[in-house]
Design a protein around this nucleic acid. Structure first.
Length: 312
RNA sequence: GCAAGGGUGGUCGAGUGGUUAAUGGCAUCGGGCUGUAAACCCGACGGAGUAAUAUCCUACAUAGGUUCAAAUCCUAUCCCUUGCA
C-alpha cells in the first residue's frame, strides 16, 4: 500500500495558546469529512471551562468533536484511559468514512495511543494514598530507597526526588508482585493506525507565544475563573483532583485559601503556563516525529503552509 | 536638615578580610519522562575562548585609600528606605 491509498489520520499539536483549535477547525472544514478528537489532558474534564480554552458548541461550526468535556472532574483520568477511548473513537470516525484529527497539547496522551503501554494494573487509589503519606512523612527519597530494595534496576533509572515515577514503580510491584523493570520491555504492539497518523506541530516564536499566554491568563481571570473555582469547590470538588490541579485553577485555590493574593495568583498562572509551553515544545522536538509549522495556528501563512503540504 | 539602616550578577536575596565569579530561590535556556503528564523530575546559567580542558577579561552604587589580600575595613560622593524634625 502506498501513502496515497492509506486512509490518513491527522494530528495537530503544539504548545498551549499556539492556535491549535483554530487551525484544526479550518482543516476539518477544508477536508469536509473530518471529525476532531481532543488530545488534551484537561479539556477532557467536564465543568471546568474558563481556563481550558475549551471550544464552544457554536465555535465548532458543525464539526463533530470527541473526547471533550466528558469526564467528571472528581475522576483522576489517565493517559491509558484516554488512549483506549481514542482508539475506539478513531475506528468509529473511520467507519463513517470520515478522517480523524487528533488535536491537543498532551504529547504523552498521543504517545500512549501510538505506542501503547505495557500491560500493568490500574491505579490503586488506596495504595497511592498510603505511599503519598509515606512521602509526606519521610520524604521522596525514602520511597526511592524502598524501590531500590525491591527493584534495583528501576530505581537506578529514576531520580530519588522523582516521586511520581518512583511511586508508580512501587505500586506496580505491590499490586502484581512483578518488578516494573521486568514489565517495561514488554511493549504492547502498536495499533494498526499508528503509522497513519501525520503529526503537525505549531511553533510560534517563543516571545510572541509567551505574550499570548500572558494575555490569555489575564482574560481567564477577567472572565470569572475565580467564580468558576468557587462554584466547583462549593459543590465539594477536592483541590487534590487532577481537574483542579490545572493551571490557573490551582493558583485560584491557593488564593481562596488565603495563601496568595489575587494578583500573585494571576502572575503565577502566567508563569506556570509559560513553563508548561516550553516543556511541550521539548516533548514534540524529541518524542514525536512531527512536521513543524512555524507560526500561530490562526496566522494566514501558517495555514497556507499546511494546505500546501496536504495539497488542499 | 538630623538619626538609623541600605545599595551584590536578568531579578529577589545570602555573604561581611583570605579556596572559588560569589550559597540559595526565581526568571531564562536545554533536557528526561510507559497508567498523576496543565503532573513529576534533571542540567546549564557574568563575558570571551576550546571538541573539552587551559587561558584571558569584567564583576558586589561611584571614586579613592588601608592591607600580602577587600563585596567585606576607612574616606568622599551619589542614590534608596524608615524615624524625627
Amino acid at each position: 500500500m502506498t501513502s496515497q491509498t492509506l486512509k490518513p489520520i491527522y494530528s495537530i499539536v503544539g504548545p498551549t495558546a499556539s492556535g491549535k483549535t483554530e487551525i484544526s477547525l479550518d482543516l476539518a472544514l477544508k477536508l469536509g469529512n473530518a471529525e476532531i478528537i481532543n488530545c488534551d489532558s484537561v479539556q477532557i474534564y467536564r465543568e471546568i471551562w474558563i481556563a481550558t480554552a475549551k471550544i464552544t458548541e457554536a465555535e465548532m461550526r458543525g464539526v463533530p468533536h470527541h473526547l471533550l468535556d466528558y469526564v467528571s472532574p472528581e475522576i483522576n483520568y489517565t493517559a491509558a484511559d484516554w488512549a483506549a477511548e481514542a482508539t475506539i473513537k478513531i475506528s468509529e470516525v473511520e467507519s463513517r468514512g470520515n478522517i480523524p484529527i487528533l488535536v491537543g497539547g498532551t504529547g504523552f496522551y498521543l504517545r500512549a495511543l501510538r505506542q501503547p503501554f505495557f500491560e500493568s494494573p490500574k491505579t490503586d487509589e488506596k495504595l497511592r494514598e498510603k505511599l503519598k503519606s509515606i512521602k509526606e512523612i519521610k520524604g521522596a527519597e525514602h520511597l526511592h530507597r524502598m524501590l531500590r530494595r525491591i527493584d534495583d534496576l528501576s530505581a537506578a533509572n529514576l531520580f530519588p526526588r522523582d516521586y511520581v515515577r518512583v511511586m508508580r514503580a512501587l505500586e506496580v510491584f505491590f499490586q502484581t508482585g512483578i518488578r516494573f523493570s521486568e514489565l517495561q520491555p514488554k511493549r504492547a504492539t502498536p495499533p494498526e493506525f499508528a503509522d497513519r497518523i501525520t503529526i503537525f506541530a505549531l511553533n510560534p516564536p517563543r516571545n510572541l507565544l509567551y505574550q499570548q499566554i500572558n494575555r490569555r491568563a489575564e482574560k481567564h481571570f477577567a472572565d470569572g475563573l475565580v467564580e468558576e473555582v468557587k462554584l466547583l469547590r462549593e459543590r465539594g470538588l477536592n483541590d487534590e483532583t487532577n481537574a483542579l490541579g490545572a493551571h490557573g485553577y490551582r493558583r485560584v485555590c491557593e488564593y481562596l485559601e488565603g495563601q496568595r493574593t489575587l494578583q500573585s495568583a494571576i502572575e503565577q498562572t502566567k508563569q506556570d503556563v509559560r513553563n508548561y509551553a516550553k516543556r511541550q515544545l521539548t516533548w514534540f522536538r524529541h518524542k514525536e516525529k512531527v512536521i513543524w509549522l512555524d507560526g500561530f495556528g490562526n496566522e494566514e501563512k501558517t495555514r497556507a503552509e499546511l494546505w500546501k503540504i496536504l495539497d488542499l
